[in-house]
Design a protein around this nucleic acid. Sequence first.
DNA 1: GCAAGGAGTGAACGGTGCTTCAATCCTTGG
DNA 2: CCAAGGATTGAAGCACCGTTCACTCCTTGC
Lengths: 199, 199
Amino acid sequence: MVYRSTERVRARLDASRRRIVAAALEVMAEHGYAGCTVAAVANRAALATGTVYRHFPTKADLFAEVFRTASQREVDAVTRAAALETTVADRVTAVVETFCGRALQSPRLAYALLAEPVDPAVDAERLVFRRAYARVLAGHVAEGIARGELPPQDPELAATALVGALAEAMVGPLSAGVAGPGTVPGLTTFLHRALGVAP
Amino acid sequence: MVYRSTERVRARLDASRRRIVAAALEVMAEHGYAGCTVAAVANRAALATGTVYRHFPTKADLFAEVFRTASQREVDAVTRAAALETTVADRVTAVVETFCGRALQSPRLAYALLAEPVDPAVDAERLVFRRAYARVLAGHVAEGIARGELPPQDPELAATALVGALAEAMVGPLSAGVAGPGTVPGLTTFLHRALGVAP
DNA sequence: GCAAGGAGTGAACGGTGCTTCAATCCTTGG
DNA sequence: CCAAGGATTGAAGCACCGTTCACTCCTTGC
């Protein structure tokens, strides 16, 4: 046994793996999930098709990771934006603005993450994504109730409904053109009222 | 030219076509869109695979019609339920209860119509479906504003957000088990507040 | 430099399921 | 009953892609 994987090789492997995920994300942001053949991803990563399979057992596994990565980034952005505010009202505003702003910035990616038809195994990851958003929001809602800024209510349910409303309001604009200028403020008001933020 | 299609034949053709759509709907309600191969649908309709293609140019066309039919039925049910009520609050309650009740009654079908990964061409039909719901709701919202039962707001946007909240709140329960008992009333309250129904 | 064995390659494979088509059956009007 | 022509059949065709694998290249430690 003369060959044993060394640090340098492991670093290169790691880099390849990351490059594959990044490439997949790029292809998805450009052509949607529909354009994401394994060959296209490999090509973008400057690797052979077969090499992808040295890092991921199946295409679904690769894209599960892609979705997980991209989703985490989105959730983080929203979490960070909310953390800068103090009242629940301001936090919800921050969430809506961040979510919509980012979605409209890269519409193709947002559509893929939110609504595009994908492999069922990848679709499962989407549910996790949405639940992650809901969890963040549920935390703020619960705290709002505790502080007396919001009336008593089921934070989980409220958060889920918020996420649904947000996503739905974005899907239309994403698939066809751009959102009207009133969309984001209108949505903010709507969601504030839904939660029972005192006017 | 001795043969010319007669009334009887045209009736039989029509019946076949309808039987194909009905069969597709049945298969979808049982096994989801994933289980809907053309062969399975034809089999259920007691026809040969090839016959399907004498009625629909492609599978996507067939399922576009299936979605259209099923969606119309759902929208009609909701419309009818709302029409029995007078105040906006009661109408929204009726919509939520009807929507959720029907969805939970045939969860596999509801999941297919709302969220299951489908062919992109069929997915387009889904957007129409959701917009149809939104249109119904937007009408009620607009009337509510006119009557002074609701504060001024963009009825389209509000309706879209309502539909999103409803759909999202149902997807969880549909994919895994049943809805908790508090879901429907909780959702109703949430949506009333969102619209600004006077408490 | 060399043997051992992992990493990388990409053309070929294979499964799935939509779609077609030549053969057959059925309907119609004479 | 017959000829014309549409309707039906279902097995074969076909395309598309994910996946594999025999081969080559590279890295390692002696």
